[in-house]
Design a protein around this nucleic acid. Structure first.
Length: 269
DNA sequence: GCGGCGG
């Protein structure tokens, strides 16, 4: 509801069948987001996607396009439902079919707002609608990365996932197809956030966890050190909660195999 | 000249 103050960075429209989709990449002090609205003559509905989610939307559309191709057209309607958790929101992707054709329903559920939904028709001869939609997302991703480097990173940590959009460096912490791990690794500028380092061992291996930051934002570096070699993964803090859930998932799934061993050899440096 | 079963 905060009208006006948000800057529009990119505006695109897609007309498909009798719907008109608006894509507005906008920015406000909390970060960037993509507003996607679907407009028909009587109806307008909107979902708000945090910048970091655009790449996932692109991938999901791609997924539905390719898996629909791979699958026979006609026949039983496939319903691969997926859900995408971004910050405080959950987006649900569902394919459906009725007499009008196949469609992809994307709905956003967030606290304190009623669920909003956009529905993207697949098209009559394949998945042209989804394809066109994906292409727009692609263009927006490119524009966001190339021409629109955010000015200055805002101060403050953004691992508070309850707070809404992450600040400042949003567009650059996207775990996109070309995540530049090297760039992160070689610009350490470490420890301006505190002494938060931990080490753990598993079997013969040692793993270091280090919070760090560079001009692109804050991150957690997890390194496996073997002799002179160190290999790391660099996790933007915006992904930390999701990472945690991932680990939790696998802990759960492998529970019976690792019972009694957890936590035995973790210590703080 | 459309239309999407959830509440």
């Amino acid at each position: 509801m905060n009208g006006g103050s948000d800057v529009e960075l990119v505006c695109k429209t897609l007309q498909f069948e009798h719907k008109l989709f608006y894509f507005d990449l906008k920015e406000n002090p909390r970060g960037r987001y993509l507003k996607i609205s679907e407009k028909t003559s009587a109806t307008r509905s909107t979902i708000i996607v945090p910048v970091d989610g655009i790449v996932w939307f692109r991938d999901l559309f791609d997924y539905y396009i390719t898996s629909a191709d791979h699958d026979g057209v006609g026949g039983a309607s496939v319903s691969f439902s997926k859900e995408l958790k971004l910050e405080t929101k959950v987006f649900y992707f569902d394919v459906g079919e009725n007499k009008r054709g196949r469609f992809l329903k994307v709905s956003e559920a967030s606290v304190s707002r009623n669920r909003s939904t956009i529905i993207v028709p697949a098209g009559s001869s394949g998945e042209e609608g989804w394809l066109a939609f994906k292409n727009i997302l692609e263009e927006i991703l490119v524009t966001n990365q190339q021409h629109m480097e955010p000015p200055d990173r805002l101060p403050g940590l953004s691992d508070d996932v309850g707070a809404g959009f992450i600040s400042g460096h949003s567009g650059l912490s996207v775990p996109g197809p070309e995540l530049n791990v090297d760039r992160y690794v070689d610009l350490p500028s470490q420890d301006e956030m505190g002494n938060l380092s931990k080490v753990m061992r598993a079997d013969q291996k040692r793993f270091f966890f280090d919070l760090g930051s560079n001009n692109r934002g804050h991150f957690l570096r997890i390194s496996e050190v073997a002799g002179p070699d160190r290999s790391s993964i660099i996790l933007p803090l915006s992904g930390l909660t999701q990472f945690h859930e991932m680990i939790g998932h696998f802990v759960e799934v492998t529970k019976d195999r690792i019972d009694g061993m957890s936590g035995a050899n973790v210590r703080t440096v």
